[in-house]
């Protein structure tokens, strides 16, 4: 059997990264905003209460705590600034997605979000493989691409656990199948979309 394993090219991976409708800054740290401003405020309050408000009958701690409204105000200001930053981020995301997704058909949009390869390959498989056949799927990673491809392949049920003897087709997406030579000899190349995107068919027993 000719080569069936081709790793994902950097170009395809780059496509996927660019196409992913990326989310938001999950790790925006609020550390800076809060602590710098709150620390300045608390420091200011302590200085004021320690140096300029000595005649008050309340204790030093009571006087400092009496200024919670200011602390709350600073916090609200930080809150609003962070939110403005997030709004600006969401605006730029929206523009990006309008550019990439508006006016696109459902198929085109699915193609874009899966990096132009996975969805196209899933459609290719659905066209080639008759329905109600037993399939086994191998992908370059068992998490993201496997789940995406299995999702788009359905009603071809790639996630059903089937012993190899019962498998009619093997679908390979830039993966080295976890099969030995003896097992691979039971199959032949049935269709190929691109290097690395291959369907194997079981050789019928005579």
């Amino acid at each position: 059997m000719s080569a069936i394993y081709y790793p994902l090219t950097p170009q395809i991976q780059a496509f996927e990264v660019n196409a992913l409708p990326l989310i938001y800054l999950n790790r925006v740290s609020v550390f800076y905003y809060v602590f710098v401003l709150a620390a300045v405020l608390v420091f200011g309050i302590i200085i004021r209460e320690a140096l300029f408000n000595l005649k008050s009958k309340r204790t030093f701690l009571q006087r400092v705590c009496g200024h919670w409204k200011w602390l709350f105000f600073v916090m609200a200001l930080c809150f609003f600034l962070i939110d403005l930053k997030m709004l600006s981020f969401q605006r730029s995301r929206l523009i990006f997605h309008l550019k990439n997704f508006s006016g696109k058909s459902l198929d085109e949009a699915r193609s874009v979000i899966t990096g132009y390869e996975i969805y196209e390959f899933a459609r290719f498989c659905q066209e080639k493989i008759p329905q109600a056949q037993s399939v086994k799927l191998f992908t370059s990673d068992v998490q993201t691409r496997y789940k995406q491809l299995a999702y788009y392949l359905y009603p071809l049920d790639a996630r059903r656990v089937v012993p190899l003897e019962e498998v009619d087709y093997i679908i390979i997406f830039h993966a080295r199948p976890d099969l030995n030579d003896e097992q691979l000899r039971q199959f032949r190349i049935f269709a190929r979309r691109k290097d690395g995107q291959i369907i194997l068919e079981r050789i019928k027993r005579k």
Partner: peptide
Amino acid sequence: FFVGNWNLIWFM
């Protein structure tokens, strides 16, 4: 407290 998911809600 130290991820941007919640804005400053937990601090508040």
